[in-house]
Amino acid sequence: MRIPAVSALVLACLTVGGCTSGAGSDIVVPPAPVAMKTGSISAASAGPMPAADIGEMQAAARPPVRPQPAALAWEGPASQSHAFDGMETTVGMPMPAERPVAALRPTMSETRGERTQIYGHRFRDAKPMNFGRVSPRSLAVHGVDVSRWQGDIDWLRLRTQGANFAYIKATDGGDHVDPMFGTNWRKAKESGVKRGAYHFFYWCRTAGEQAEWFIRNVPRDPDALPPVIDVEYNHQSNCKMRLSRAKILEKMQVFMDKLERHYGKRPIIYTAPDFYADNLDGEFMEYPFWLRSVAAHPTKIYPGRRWVFWQYSGSGLTQGVEGKIDLNVFHGSESDWHNWVAQAN
């Protein structure tokens, strides 16, 4: 009698005495993958393909089913699955240096002329600063960052005042969502403002928890700007922990790696002068930076650091928003902006 394949396998297993049941012995260890690095993310190459029967081969020949995107925490129960939804993405993102962005090759959307209109800045400032010849007003593409404190924003009017991009506060820590995030995220896109989301990092919470919380609440939109990690000292926080420089860098790396894997875009680091001097000077040189510098040009406050965005005011005034708003500018020309956005997406 011919022994069925399964029976033969069991018999062979018993013969060599290797099949046991236990808490740790029933884990099959796959062949070690070959690590390939793209930016700071390691991607494993596929291991050997197991033999497949005819049914499996026929199933493999059918077009893959694209998984549904994860639900958002502020829209209902969150999904536990955050796998890529079938789109090919490039992990990592170029950083504009002093003059490199114009040389970046535009994507197909750029060559088709699908560039958004750039509005000249019409912002005012409650506390204007004289930056001299290196004024942010000499740069072409201005924008804002907002949170609940800006209240109900008239996004169409804000855009025509010069808000060509907006970073919108999404989360902080591992359990807080900005109550205006969902509204601002939707209305910014409807008004044609190029939008991105940022997370305020809380040093008393694990980096992994914070990354998962951000992912649960911020949609994976291929047209969005890269996500931002906001790292700074917050003297009003109930978290009084002061970590070592090494621990801060470790936690940031964990958080940024998780976001880069999920969104396919290298996160941008936002920071302020005191935190930068203590922890980030000379670090993360391959990452894009968004620098707060309201009293002088970033080259004076952050010597040697390349940057993408400059937050030059925390006391901006504009139509479309009641009260003050943070003002920012992109490091480059209008053409540089279009090329950078195309590469980032």
Results as ranks from 00 to 15, higher is better:
28 V>F: 05
29 V>T: 12
146 V>H: 00
270 Y>E: 02
313 S>G: 05
42 S>Y: 13
126 A>R: 07
256 M>P: 03
214 F>C: 10
272 A>H: 06
185 W>V: 06
195 R>I: 00
36 M>N: 13
291 L>Q: 00
239 C>E: 13
21 S>L: 07
82 H>R: 15
1 M>F: 13
343 Q>D: 15
11 L>D: 05
312 Y>K: 01
92 G>T: 12
319 Q>L: 09
77 P>Q: 12
233 Y>M: 02
206 T>Y: 05
324 K>T: 05
285 M>T: 12
163 A>I: 11
81 S>G: 10
3 I>P: 03
264 G>M: 09
307 W>L: 07
251 K>C: 03
35 A>G: 06
226 P>G: 12
314 G>L: 01
124 R>W: 10
83 A>N: 10
45 S>R: 08
173 G>R: 09
48 P>Q: 06
186 R>K: 15
320 G>P: 03
269 I>E: 04
73 A>D: 11
235 H>E: 12
158 L>M: 08
3 I>Q: 11
74 W>A: 05
259 L>D: 03
295 A>L: 06
24 G>K: 11
190 E>G: 10
18 G>K: 13
30 P>K: 11
159 R>N: 11
189 K>H: 12
290 W>C: 04
6 V>E: 12
345 N>P: 04
122 R>Q: 15
304 G>L: 15
124 R>I: 04
133 R>C: 04
318 T>N: 03
337 W>S: 02
127 K>S: 14
34 V>D: 14
322 E>A: 09
193 V>C: 06
134 V>Q: 12
56 E>G: 08
105 R>Q: 14
340 W>H: 07
181 F>H: 03
26 D>L: 04
15 T>G: 02
74 W>I: 05
59 A>G: 02
58 Q>P: 00
223 D>F: 04
340 W>G: 03
20 T>P: 00
67 P>A: 06
237 S>R: 01
234 N>W: 01
89 T>H: 11
308 V>R: 01
210 Q>V: 11
12 A>Q: 11
143 G>V: 03
194 K>M: 15
44 A>C: 12
227 P>L: 06
265 K>P: 01
305 R>C: 07
341 V>C: 10
17 G>K: 12
233 Y>Q: 05
23 A>G: 08
192 G>K: 11
166 A>R: 00
341 V>F: 08
177 V>N: 02
79 S>F: 01
140 A>R: 09
107 T>D: 15
12 A>I: 07
165 F>L: 08
209 E>P: 01
260 E>V: 10
271 T>S: 12
131 F>T: 07
14 L>Y: 02
81 S>Q: 10
226 P>R: 08
245 R>A: 07
338 H>A: 09
144 V>T: 15
64 P>V: 15
97 A>E: 11
282 G>S: 05
102 A>S: 13
183 T>A: 06
157 R>S: 08
275 F>I: 03
170 A>H: 01
73 A>H: 11
23 A>P: 03
172 D>G: 05
149 W>V: 09
54 I>E: 14
205 R>P: 03
129 M>V: 15
11 L>S: 03
69 P>F: 10
53 D>K: 10
304 G>M: 14
314 G>R: 00
146 V>S: 02
175 D>H: 11
1 M>L: 14
187 K>L: 14
141 V>G: 02
345 N>S: 15
226 P>I: 08
68 Q>K: 14
230 D>W: 00
71 A>G: 08
137 R>C: 06
133 R>L: 12
7 S>Q: 07
300 K>R: 12
67 P>V: 09
139 L>H: 12
